[in-house]
Nucleic acid binder design. Structure first.
Lengths: 120, 120
DNA sequence: ACTTTAATTTCACTTTAAATGAAAAACATT
DNA sequence: AATGTTTTTCATTTAAAGTGAAATTAAAGT
């Protein structure tokens, strides 16, 4: 599906790959579920981002978790979320946290810490 | 809250204790999430039932699981549901399964195996 | 047996989370 | 400035979970 040579992918391609609407990816980002690299204002999703998103979808649709609880686990850096997590996704998760925390991203995304705000 | 001497409680009392509508308890029963003892057609909830229901609520509201996945875990008798389950609730769960399977209940509840039917 | 009483069931409605559609806005590029 | 593309906003849709109220049914009392 994805060319091994490339290292990042535009939102539309990722959405298509995941079988969801790109709007849903913006939606997830509002809750800090993913934070793709920004070059200018355009988003670039890494393979880690994509694996991570796949895992989030799995948590939702196979383990029946809701977004709220996934977000809570992330905020806690909860070991629970890693327990049953495939090896490679653990790495993605750590990369995700690192990026999220260290602010590798170029542009401060507003509403970054809206996570949970709109979720009641 | 509950008198230690008694061993079972009517639906309204249980609903009030759990802070939910009694209608919700009927709703859960449709999906075989709980099966109180029936005397005549009236329902009597044991302490085990109540602990079990409290745990189900916890799974939903603290662990963010949806009914569908909880039901699936029950159907599988999945170890997962027991892993993080408090000791006493494990017992309740086993009692629940035993009662559900052995049919201690007096009246065959229709829609007993509707579980998952209405959940899409 | 008949009436009364109370639990249950049915049906339709409300609420909320999750996802999405479409148009407006914001940038980059030419 | 005009064009094209991504993003954002706003409103709507969908489905799960929960609930209200009336209709139904069974038990209990007379």
């Amino acid at each position: 599906m994805f060319d091994e040579a490339d290292k990042s992918y535009p939102i539309e391609l990722v959405a298509e790959f995941l079988g969801i609407n790109s709007r849903t990816l913006y939606y997830y980002e509002k809750f800090s579920l993913v934070c793709p690299l920004r070059r200018g204002r355009k988003r670039y999703y890494s393979k880690e981002d994509i694996n991570w998103l796949e895992y989030v979808r799995e948590l939702m649709y196979e383990h029946g978790m809701n977004l709220r609880s996934i977000i809570i686990l992330i905020k806690r850096r909860d070991a629970v979320i890693l327990d049953r997590c495939p090896e490679d996704v653990v790495l993605c998760f750590k990369n995700y946290l690192a990026r999220k925390d260290n602010g590798t991203k170029k542009i401060k995304i507003e509403g970054e810490d809206d996570a949970l705000k709109d979720i009641k």
